[in-house]
Nucleic acid binder design. Sequence first.
RNA 1: GACGGGCUAGCUCAAUUGGCAGAGCAAGUGACUCUUAAUCACUAGGUUCGGGGUUCGAGUCCCCGGCCCGUCACCA
Length: 543
Amino acid sequence: MPCRWGSARIGLTQVLPAPENMTNQDQQEQSNPANEAESAAGEQKLIEDRLAKTAQIRAKGLDPYPPRYDRTHTLVEATKLFEYAEIMASSGVGDDVEHPRTETVRIAGRVMARRGMGKAAFIDLKDGHGSIQAFARQNTMGDDAYEIVNLLDIGDIIGVEGSVIRTRRGEVSVEVQQVTVLTKAMRPLPDKWHGLQDQEIRFRQRYLDLISNENAMKNALLRSSVVKAMRDFMHGEGFIEVETPILVPVAAGAQATPFETHHNQLDRDLYLRIATELYLKKLIVGGIERVFEIGRLFRNEGLDHDHNPEFTTIESYQAYADYNDVMAMVENMVSFIAKETTGSMVLPAIEGVRPEIDLTPPWPRLDLREEIVKQTGIDFVEVRDAELLSDAMRDRGIHVEAGSAWGRLLDKVISSEVEPNLIQPHFLVDYPVEMSPLAKHKLNSDGIVERFEGFVMGTELCNAFTELNDPVDQRTRFEQQEKMRLEFGDDQADRLDEDFLVAIEHGMPPTGGVGLGIDRLAMLIAGEESIREILLFPAMRSM
RNA sequence: GACGGGCUAGCUCAAUUGGCAGAGCAAGUGACUCUUAAUCACUAGGUUCGGGGUUCGAGUCCCCGGCCCGUCACCA
């Protein structure tokens, strides 16, 4: 597989267009140094054929890559224009009510298929909105203009001028008066009937996926709609959108391994952020009472069907709110986004993938402690020691990573025994303090913090808490995390961020905050099981 | 990281027990002025992911490596 693209790239460099001042013949000779007797094979030949046609277009005094094209209608608009003309004709309006036709339109799109008929040809065109057939006939175009039609290849982008008609077989078509080559393509498109099947090429060359597979385009557009609906919701709730640093001196605010980088001028090591949390809370300190950021996070970890090293989250913080307020906001936001993007708060069942998912609020709140007891018999209030917890886990056949801290072990219990059951949306509520260094203690509950996580389809969607604003307690929690890093070699422990501590020492109001994975939300709404179907350019191993 | 599946023409896929590497689409030439997976005839197109081995003979069997997918592990 490596050589598939490797050789292709070499192939293109071999046939790069010649300089402007060369004649067409020069170009042909230049582009094929191996002379005509030894013609190129395979992909190289396909490219050379297209280069030859490009030269012929130039020989006619035409630019195969003109700078712009005045299009009057998208393909969908052109179809609608005709349907309107047809309706008018049916009520006797128009020059020829038997054969309605529109005014002359100018459309543009990619050639998806060609059906040549000698002195006539049918061309299927596709643009960003839809598709339409172009019908080219030599006698309506003239001999000279029609020659261009014979120089077209699948994949070329062309402009077509003509009026819209319906052919005898009933296909709405633009009857071509003039064809303009807007972009000559050098490489063929994937199989027109089967589309692009090779997953690897779909991810590495997403543009081909978008051209050939409807679902790829659908997901790309859905992702955009999800983010737009999210912004609309947040702005509607009075939140201010901000952007905070991606290159940070301390990768704090979450438990994850960061990417490292270096600023030359400052001669300073920096990290790519693993969370937006602490900067946003600084803004709460500063008096922006409702704030959110939609942005990319980077975590130097493995990749699988729902993890990518860079992913997008929304984090929001609201002064004077607690985690109960945030829970209501999350279920309202997610259901609103579903309604806006799909028309319903109930996501349809998908055969072999999932049942119907009902996102209508309120989502059930499940007490974390009770839920773990119910699924495993383990009560984390009783088993407050890493050794005891490890034993209890082993008794129940749960994999135990040697030397893990108590909080990490419990996290494992939750993710392997509790989460997978949460297919319909649920909130797990009230976590132990050991695994939540940024959340505030719950009143009258020893060792428990006001934290919740939202789950759908057995995976985490969001993580939220009543934010810890006691600077003394926060410093202690950070110190515990730093200790964990040393004691357990846990380089994913959170880090002490002195700047942040100084900020909240100035006083941060009571605040509720949440982080929610946008890629996972888009997966859920799209009904996709892999994050790679949602990310346009997922991380891939180098070839 | 471990185990399993996969990689064959530009694309989609075949190839029996180890026995001449094939088809459809795309491409080229020719025919064809209402097709729509157009049709018909002909032509060309291959380092079978890379490297090594066994064998008279390897797409096929063995070893090493690469990439993709899946499961597990890790990971919010």
